[in-house]
């Protein structure tokens, strides 16, 4: 009864906007903010649409939310960068066919004054322990994103439970978090793509990089149609196949060179987690 009433009301409300049934030609991709903020999707989405005839809708949110949306069947395919969380969803049967697409790396960055004296340190846990010991400010995403997920694991590896007053949670995307870290002259963990995009705006510099723990691996997963009604399994499959196709991988390989003088992602279709 209530449902019918809501239907009728919304039907009236929506008439002027021209509601069109989308059918199965629409694919919903849930993904992390870094793929969008880096501009990569702006290049890949039109390519996918032209090649397959599908309309792709990209929902860019933190990886935690992107995976949760996919697990609820609110998306058809997902591109994320939190291997541990992803594997859990795959094991639970909500997502399937997880395949690595590309990678880049995270950097531990900080103010040039380097109050915790970590510049050039090779091991991230050691660097984090020094930050904690010095009580130097550290800004965390605090938003269950892929970056936040990794950061929490790194603190665990360091054997430290970070907390106030020196540990600041921004609860925002990578760009905004870099702004806060810059303003507070604090350390933070960032992906390389976002750091390059902000290089002109922030005075923070790279402190620790190259640690194997800082690998940033992006994988594509299809949504199990059993998760909910109206999952477009075929469309999801088509996008996953597109991301792994040689032509797309070639585009990923050169993306960013023009603007930043170096590529932002390294394509790795066909590899598995064990190759790293």
């Amino acid at each position: 009864m209530v449902r019918r009433l809501v239907h009728a009301l919304l039907a009236v409300a929506l008439l002027p906007a021209g509601v069109a049934a989308q059918g199965s030609r629409t694919v919903i991709l849930s993904t992390t903010t870094s793929t969008q903020d880096s501009g990569l999707l702006d290049v890949l989405v039109p390519l996918f649409e032209r090649r397959t005839g599908y309309t792709l809708k990209t929902i860019s949110v933190g990886t935690g939310q992107a995976l949760a949306l996919a697990a609820r069947g609110e998306a058809d395919v997902t591109l994320a960068h939190a291997p541990a969380m992803e594997k859990k969803h795959v094991a639970d049967g909500q997502l399937r066919n997880r395949r690595p697409v590309m990678y880049n790396d995270f950097l531990l960055i900080g103010p040039p004054a380097d109050p915790a004296n970590i510049r050039g340190e090779k091991s991230v846990p050691t660097a984090l322990r020094r930050i904690a010991a010095a009580g130097a400010r550290f800004v965390s995403r605090g938003d269950r994103s892929g970056t936040h997920n990794l950061e929490q694991r790194l603190w665990r590896d360091a054997g430290i439970t970070p907390g106030p007053p020196w540990y600041i949670e921004s609860g925002q995307g990578m760009g905004a978090t870099l702004g806060i870290a810059n303003d507070r002259q604090a350390y933070t963990l960032t992906d390389r793509a976002t750091m390059l995009a902000f290089a002109r705006r922030v005075s923070l510099t790279s402190m620790v990089e190259g640690d194997r723990r800082l690998l940033n691996l992006y994988s594509v997963m299809e949504v199990n149609p059993a998760n909910g009604p109206r999952v477009n399994a075929e469309g999801g499959q088509a996008f996953a196949a597109f991301m792994l196709a040689p032509e797309t991988q070639q585009v990923i390989k050169t993306f960013g060179v023009e603007k930043y003088g170096q590529p932002l992602f390294v394509p790795i279709a066909g590899k598995t987690d064990d190759d790293f």
Partner: peptide, 19 residues
């Protein structure tokens, strides 16, 4: 999609913003 009006498939469209 799993909600009461999921069959309309208008989430992530301008119509949804209008609503």
């Amino acid at each position: 999609r799993s909600g009461p009006l999921g069959e309309w498939e208008i989430l992530y469209t301008p119509a949804a913003i209008v609503a």
